[in-house]
């Protein structure tokens, strides 16, 4: 080997990696098609038209359960996080206890406790049975929504505690120096800064929340997962509905991630 070949960098070959990457992508795409096409052609999809409407309802249920529980859960998480940073000691203790219990026990157990526990308690109380709320309370979804909301509040309470604590003290002092009342300070400075900071974590947690929603099928709420189980029971087709909902969940996850990325891009950042 001559010295020349050792010293010459492989610069003339630089475009080569690009071409090989393209080639590899094509190979991957071909392998992907080789998996997807037989799946679509060979598997049984004849049940699909009969269940389209049910699927649409199921998707809607999964989506609104995720969004409403995350929305209300965040509303609860903000005070839960705040009192742990600044609140009176007894309240901080209660908030910490709530977070520990929610984060220390499985969501499925919490859901069954509320559904079977409260669900068996309420019918024995006459004034609840006679009240207008009974029509709602005898259904399953309030318990599903309640347990999902409390779970989100518990996990995000912890996230918000960290976020509130990480806002630089100087910014809060500056707000106070401007004569802001504690509430204005919270509304204008502390909360927005904490939320911006927590946003990436909240994105991940909201995806986890979406992934928790199939548990509601165990207490008879009809979400996407419940639709797939029902198809399995009706038609004995096992894989196809499961694969379909796996893809549906991936699409929903993708949309959620994109939505959060859009939100994060709108956070004002001072650069340089």
């Amino acid at each position: 080997m001559s010295l020349d070949t050792v010293l010459t960098p492989p610069s003339p070959n630089l475009p080569a990696p690009d071409r090989s990457v393209l080639f590899r992508r094509l190979v991957f795409a071909a392998i992907g098609l080789a998996i997807v096409v037989p799946v679509v052609l060979l598997m049984r999809w004849d049940w699909l038209p009969d269940y389209l409407e049910l699927f649409a309802q199921g998707i809607w249920t999964s989506i609104w359960l995720t969004l409403v529980s995350a929305g209300v859960g965040l509303m609860l998480a903000i005070p839960i996080g705040l009192v742990q940073v600044t609140g009176p000691a007894p309240l901080a203790l209660v908030a910490k206890g709530f977070c520990t219990v929610i984060r220390g026990t499985p969501l499925l157990l919490q859901m069954w406790l509320l559904y079977y526990g409260l669900g068996s308690l309420f019918p024995e109380i006459p004034w609840i049975r006679e009240s207008f709320a009974w029509e709602i309370l005898r259904q399953a979804w309030p318990y599903a929504l309640l347990s999902l909301t409390l779970s989100y509040a518990g996990y995000e309470g912890e996230v918000m505690r960290g976020a509130f604590a990480s806002v630089p003290r100087g910014e809060l002092e500056a707000g106070r120096a401007f004569g802001m009342s504690p509430f204005t300070l919270l509304r204008r400075i502390w909360l927005p800064r904490a939320l911006f900071q927590a946003l990436p974590t909240l994105a991940g947690e909201t995806v986890l929340q979406l992934k928790s929603t199939p548990l509601v099928a165990t207490i008879t709420v009809i979400d996407v997962y419940a639709v797939a189980s029902r198809i399995r029971q009706d038609t004995y087709v096992v894989y196809e509905p499961l694969l379909l909902i796996a893809v549906l969940y991936m699409i929903m996850t993708l949309i959620l991630v994109r939505a959060f990325a859009w939100l994060e891009a709108r956070v004002p950042v001072k650069r340089g």
Partner: peptide
């Protein structure tokens, strides 16, 4: 890398309950 990316992406985007059923049956 591509295979591992596929693995982690799918597992982290699909609910555990669905994965458990698919993997159990399959």
């Amino acid at each position: 890398k591509a295979v591992l990316d596929l693995y982690t992406t799918i597992v982290r985007a699909v609910p555990e309950l669905v994965l458990i059923l698919i993997l159990y049956f399959a």
